[in-house]
Amino acid sequence: MLEPKVVLFLAAVLFSAGLYGVLSRRHLIMLLMSLELMLNAVNIALVTFSRYWAGEGVGMIGAHSGQFFTLMVMAVAAAEVGIGLAIIVAVYRRKHTADSDAASELKG
């Protein structure tokens, strides 16, 4: 079972599920959570490739770059959640709700 294609498939499933969550939710916090799940799925794919290339003789830095980028994704995700949650708080103050449909000022 522990083979690259299976792990990648797991990542694909998590990613698609995250997308479903993002699309189906109207609560902004839930939306953000689903987004985190998608990022996590990407991380899994990255680590998978990192492990795969370790056996191909690409040197230490080459083999670990997947893991390094996982860390980067985590950092970016943390920043994103920070900003996202702050925006949600701001929206909530103004609209008294965290419903994404409430913020529709950009309506054409």
Partner: peptide, 18 residues
């Protein structure tokens, strides 16, 4: 006509994007 596409609802944009 086109401005009707701009519903202002985040999820509609998300759908389009996805």
């Amino acid at each position: 006509l086109a401005r009707r596409l701009q519903t202002g609802l985040v999820r509609h944009y998300l759908y389009a994007f996805a």
